[in-house]
């Protein structure tokens, strides 16, 4: 029982670190800092309020965990009556290191019949943002959402000899 409580606390902490706050449908954050993986790029200050006003239903990002629930026929067979969950941050389900040996070995057990292909946290972020932005002509270049760090500039060889000086795009 106590280990379950510790687990809950851990999840909560992860949610706070990952999404900048504890989120429920009733108390939606205006702004969400997505900075858990920032390294070569800065984190993203995600304007949650603006995106909810676009009228998309919550499940586009939150699947079956909060708000309107899912309408995707592939998910409904199991998640039609899924309860709203306590934490709805991306990192609550999408792990930061999806290709670590322990995660891969866990995946190998065939108990996760449907969720054998859950993307990692980085994939989940980028699919959700870029996937939508491509459809609605939103920003899709890397630096449109997050500025590159000095480490990132070096990593991408911003000052390569053939560079046009327009590095950072």
């Amino acid at each position: 029982m106590s280990s379950k409580r510790i687990f809950t606390i851990m999840i909560l902490t992860m949610a706070i670190v990952g999404m900048g706050g504890f989120v429920t449908a009733a108390d939606m954050p205006e702004q969400v800092s997505i900075d858990r993986l920032s390294d070569l790029f800065e984190g993203v200050e995600f304007d949650h309020a603006m995106h909810t006003e676009l009228g998309e239903d919550c499940s586009v990002c939150h699947h079956h965990t909060t708000g309107t629930g899912t309408t995707d026929e592939r998910c409904i067979s199991c998640h039609a009556d899924s309860k709203e969950v306590a934490t709805v941050g991306c990192s609550d389900c999408h792990v930061a290191a999806p290709f670590s040996s322990e995660h891969i070995n866990r995946k190998s057990l065939e108990i996760y019949q449907f969720h054998i292909d859950t993307p990692g946290l980085k994939g989940a972020y980028h699919w959700n943002c870029i996937g939508c932005h491509e459809k609605v002509d939103g920003p899709t270049e890397c630096v449109d959402c997050h500025a590159r760090t000095t480490k990132g500039d070096a990593f991408y060889h911003k000052n390569a000899i053939g560079s046009s000086g327009a590095g950072g795009e």
């Binding site: 890397c142 990593f155 991408y156 060889h157 911003k158 000052n159 390569a160 000899i161 053939g162 560079s163 046009s164 590095g167 950072g168 795009e169």
Partner: peptide, 9 residues
């Protein structure tokens, strides 16, 4: 070796 063009080119 360093590339001729940056990797985001």
């Amino acid at each position: 070796p360093d590339p001729l063009l940056p990797f985001d080119d």
